[in-house]
Computed example of a mutant assay.
Amino acid sequence: MSKTKTTAGCPCGGPSLAACCGPYLDGYRDGTALPPTAEALMRSRYTAYTLKNEPYLLATWHPSTRPTERIIDPDESLQWLGLEVKSTLRLRQRKVDQAADADQDYVEFVARFRVGGKGQRLHEVSRFLREPDPSLGGTPRWFYVDGDFPTK
């Protein structure tokens, strides 16, 4: 994948694509750059959605929940507008209530987008697992598993 303007901010809100999500989008196949945290993976997945990078999204989706059908319609008039990572007591409490598991994490976020001129928002609490990846010789990496959609 070729990088777009690297001087502009990263779609996820980082300083630039090259200094933020770009290395993950470029290095996921051979493991040269893997997101070190669930939040970094979530941010890079948001960036992949903005760039319509379906191969990255599928590769970072846990095999147990990975869709088999297309997830991006290249002809859809969808415009991503911004990402806000939320830090809430509810999310921290959920993590405290679980048995300590460094290989599972949750990230709550709100992504804003526009479809056909109408603004919308996606509010999700995503679940991530860190597991060995057989395609990388067993190197552990984070995967998106699924998400819940809070009502408030």
Rank of each mutant, 00 (worst) to 15 (best):
E76F: 01
F109T: 02
K5F: 06
S44L: 08
S87G: 12
Y46T: 08
D30W: 02
S87H: 12
T68I: 06
D30I: 02
D73F: 10
H62I: 00
C21D: 00
M1V: 08
G14L: 11
A38L: 07
V145K: 10
E39H: 08
D105A: 14
E84M: 12
R92G: 05
F113M: 09
P134F: 04
R94D: 05
S135L: 13
L91K: 03
R114C: 12
T6H: 03
G138R: 01
D146F: 00
C10R: 01
S126I: 01
L17S: 01
K86N: 11
G27C: 04
L81P: 09
A111E: 04
T4P: 09
L122G: 03
E108H: 09
E76A: 15
L81G: 10
L81C: 12
S135I: 06
M1R: 11
W61K: 07
Y56L: 05
Q98Y: 08
S44C: 11
L136Y: 00
G117F: 02
P150K: 03
A40F: 09
R29I: 14
G119E: 10
G13W: 00
R127I: 14
E39N: 09
A111F: 00
D73G: 06
Y24S: 06
S87V: 10
V115T: 14
T50F: 00
L81V: 04
V115A: 14
S135C: 05
S77M: 13
T68S: 12
P132S: 15
T68E: 14
R127T: 15
S126K: 00
K86F: 09
R70K: 11
P36Q: 08
A99H: 13
Y144N: 06
H62G: 06
D148I: 13
P140V: 10
E69W: 03
D146S: 12
T32F: 07
A8P: 02
G14H: 03
R66L: 01
T37P: 05
T32I: 02
E69T: 15
E131P: 09
I71W: 01
R141C: 15
Y106H: 15
E84D: 15
D105M: 05
S135Q: 13
R130N: 11
Y49N: 04
Q120A: 05
S2E: 13
P23V: 05
Y28L: 07
P55S: 04
G137M: 07
S64H: 08
W142G: 08
R127K: 15
Y106G: 09
K118N: 11
R45G: 03
A48Y: 00
D133W: 01
A38Q: 06
P36I: 12
V125T: 13
Y144F: 11
Q98D: 11
Q120R: 13
A19I: 04
K152W: 07
Q79D: 10
G82Y: 05
E108A: 15
D146T: 10
C10S: 05
S87A: 14
M42L: 14
Y106C: 14
G9Q: 09
R92F: 08
D30R: 03
T6L: 10
